[in-house]
Design a protein around this nucleic acid. Structure first.
Lengths: 234, 234
DNA sequence: CGCGATGCTAGAACGGTGTTCGATCAAATG
DNA sequence: CATTTGATCGAACACCGTTCTAGCATCGCG
């Protein structure tokens, strides 16, 4: 019969009991941190904390923070439903898809900021490319335009989505301002400009700050879609 | 007659001889650092080094790095010539201006990256807004579209300008890749995708990587301008 | 002239960042 | 059992933006 180990030997330097690390677990934790603290709060240390370990442990599964962000973007991209493409309805379908991306960006504030200045090439983003190409080629849009239009739309999505999740500005006194207050402040600034130098800015100030971000998003979207439509088969 | 000071007294703890700090001097130094080391290399410490001082000294003249970046953007914006607006030629003039912004971005690599996710409101950018509004309103484009189109164009400029100044990728072996090699690598990756899942991506891969960045820039520009033209007075 | 106020310069430090090194431990393999 | 392999992680490196605080130089004023 074996002699039982003394209690100080049984668990000499036991690891903190938790699920083993994995690329998936790290990605899950990163999504939680991102949804909770936004893009600025996403750091390797925070993600490691979320998993009860240190930052160095992440680097076995993920090459760099950059690579982790690529994973995040592709996971989020996978959340957008892609209906069966029907080129006859290409404009409506494109619009629906873009609005879908926008709602997913709203569900994960911070991820739009991560896409800025990045050319994602994950599997799900490739599916986007394939899907938009089916629609646009089916609509008779020339390949040269169609291939670039995907980039253009992605770029527009990232920039507008980022604008929608900007952190609230802080007033001079220090307390955070509501979006309405921020808009009112900027409106006041634009309206106060010298009318002789900026007559058109001053006189369109009402138009400039009317409508919420969603309306403005659709406004720019209309411009792009009309431009694309001018290339489509008549 | 006054007794001359002994030599060790004349300059007891003389400051390192140099021009005094000022907002302008800091901005100049920041531009030099930015042009030399890119957006990633722009730090308060580097700018201070450039001036032979420490980072703390900058904060008397500049509230924060963010404020300094706003100054940089507005200075660069001022480098773009704005011809007298002629609404009859609004499309050509808009295109010329946009290409002008692009060449200025090329002259100052890194500044495009700084504009990402930022809504600049400096004096020179306001002049841009006024100028584009004159053109578009003169062309009969409705105010609601015209006010937003400026944002849209700025956004497009920033994103494409950033893409044009991306640091060269590094291959798996570590040495930097030329833009051609990078494109060839990505082309190869896209071409190697399973043709049954991504038939359109695979078959448009030639179109996708044809042309340089300037041609691609004008391609997207055409889409936007055509969209805007669809709102113009017939 | 003296003297305090003011504008300006900085050294040191705080709390954070991404990433690397090397030791260590557990499980699988020979 | 011995050795290799995969995985973990504490400590440290080189940065970052920013703040605090002490001190200097100059100027206005009594």
């Amino acid at each position: 019969m074996a002699i039982p180990d003394p209690p100080w030997k049984t668990a000499p330097r036991q690891r903190p009991a938790r699920a083993p690390l994995s690329r998936e677990a790290i990605l899950d934790a990163a999504m939680r941190v991102l949804d909770r603290e936004g893009a600025a709060g996403l750091s390797m240390r925070r993600v490691a904390d979320e998993l009860g370990t240190g930052p160095a442990s992440l680097y076995w599964h993920v090459a760099s923070k950059d690579a982790l962000i690529d994973l995040i973007i592709d996971r989020v991209a996978g959340e957008v439903p892609l209906p069966e493409p029907d080129p006859a309805r290409w404009q409506e379908q494109l619009r629906e898809w873009l609005l879908g991306v926008r709602t997913v960006f709203a569900r994960h504030p911070g991820v739009a900021a991560l896409t800025l200045g990045r050319i994602p090439t994950g599997t799900n983003v490739l599916r986007w490319a394939e899907w938009t190409l089916v629609l646009m080629r089916g609509a008779g849009i020339p390949d040269r335009i169609a291939t670039y239009a995907g980039d253009l739309l992605g770029l527009y999505l990232g920039a507008t989505g980022y604008e929608a999740t900007l952190p609230p500005m802080t007033s001079a006194t220090g307390e955070p301002l509501s979006p309405e207050e921020t808009a009112a402040m900027m409106r006041g600034y634009f309206a106060s400009l010298p009318a002789d130098q900026f007559p058109n800015v001053v006189s369109t100030v009402d138009e400039m700050f009317s409508g919420d971000l969603d309306e403005r998003f659709e406004l720019g979207l209309d411009v792009i879609l009309r431009g694309l439509a001018s290339y489509a088969r008549p």
